[in-house]
């Protein structure tokens, strides 16, 4: 991987982040009368108070460049303003409170679905037309067509409401988090089971479909024929020759997928009232808490850009043909 390739990718990522910040700034100012309308809702305010408030929030200065510069300045310092809904709390602290549960859900979900999807896809592609391929491909296609909440709601009906194996919502029972060591973890695991299953099932289809086609593509490569000609056993050809090469597109997909997974996790969280960024998004959405919405958007968008950059760099390291 050449330095030029790396530099180009980093520059591109930086450009995208700048564009995201600009979009975030402009979008909020696009709304009629905002943010004055929200700050100065009371019609009985005296002109002096209105002027003082406008001066305090910097609204008396022109949009460009003063307000934009101030916005970029505070954004860079991690200051995203104050939540409308959660009075007195900064957007940063509101988001920080909710980020842990989402990371837990998305991280474990990605891990499980990547391992399972890769295993199923690799086997299905290697034994093309076999039982695993036919059942697995059919199921993958159906799962791929299901929004996360369409997977989650039946899971609640069957396993929570019907069989009563798992709780229907939340992350802990009342007082469950305060119990002594193994009990609190078991409580968490019982609450995590169904949301995690939802996220994993939602992703497995996509991963196994791509892994299958990647394996099928490598199967026709010359080096596979060579490996077979050397007299290697079938399993060894798959593990040592086909599999590592087919993993290349998977690495990219898993990294690029981050935005899609977060989007899906938002709806899964809503179904299970999981106290993460997804339920926060909905609360902010129904309260029209724009600072929080903007903060979440900025966080997700920047993470996605960074994940893409990571994918490009990893790909460049793994595949010596990439020079940019």
């Amino acid at each position: 991987m050449s330095g030029r390739y790396l530099g180009q990718r980093v520059l591109q990522a930086l450009g995208t982040i700048v564009a995201i910040v600009l979009l975030n700034f402009l979008l909020f100012r696009l709304m009629p009368g905002s943010p004055e309308r929200i700050l100065l809702r009371n019609p009985n305010l005296s002109p002096q108070v209105v002027e003082a408030t406008r001066a305090r929030w910097g609204l008396d200065k022109p949009l460009l460049p003063d307000q934009l510069v101030a916005y970029i300045g505070s954004t860079v310092q991690g200051d995203f303003g104050y939540s409308f809904k959660f009075r007195g709390q900064s957007v940063t602290s509101v988001i920080a409170d909710r980020i842990g549960p989402t990371l837990l859900l998305v991280g474990l979900g990605e891990l499980i679905s990547a391992i399972a999807g890769i295993a199923i896809g690799a086997y299905a592609g290697w034994r093309r037309g076999g039982l695993v391929d036919r059942v697995g491909s059919g199921a993958s296609l159906v799962l791929y067509s299901m929004p996360y909440f369409v997977i989650g709601m039946p899971l609640i009906v069957i396993f929570a409401a019907g069989l009563g194996w798992f709780p229907t919502s939340g992350m802990t029972s009342v007082g469950g988090g305060d119990r002594p060591f193994p009990a609190n973890l078991i409580d968490l695991a019982r609450h995590l089971a169904l949301p995690l299953a939802t996220v994993s099932l939602g992703l497995i289809g996509q991963y196994s479909i791509l892994m299958r086609s990647a394996i099928i593509e490598t199967r026709s490569e010359d080096y596979i024929t060579t490996a077979r000609a050397k007299g290697l056993r079938d399993g060894r050809v798959l593990r040592a020759h086909a599999f590592p090469n087919a993993m290349l597109p998977m690495v990219t997909l898993i990294a690029i997928n981050l935005g899609y997974v977060i989007g899906g996790a938002i709806t899964a969280e809503i179904v299970f009232s999981w106290p993460g960024l997804g339920t926060l998004t909905i609360t902010a959405l129904s309260a029209r808490d724009y600072p929080v919405l903007q903060g979440i958007f900025l966080l997700v968008a920047v993470s996605v850009v960074l994940a893409n950059l990571a994918a490009d760099i990893i790909y460049g390291i793994l595949d010596p043909r990439v020079r940019g």
């Binding site: 935005g259 938002i266 724009y290 919405l293 968008a301």
Partner: peptide, 26 residues
């Protein structure tokens, strides 16, 4: 194509999430 790349990188749903309420308000 730079503009297109910008929209390709951003997750559709998350962008829609912030665009929709603003547009509805407008």
């Amino acid at each position: 194509m730079r503009v297109a790349d910008f929209f390709l990188v951003l997750p559709t749903f998350v962008l829609a999430l912030i665009l929709a309420p603003v547009l509805i308000e407008v």
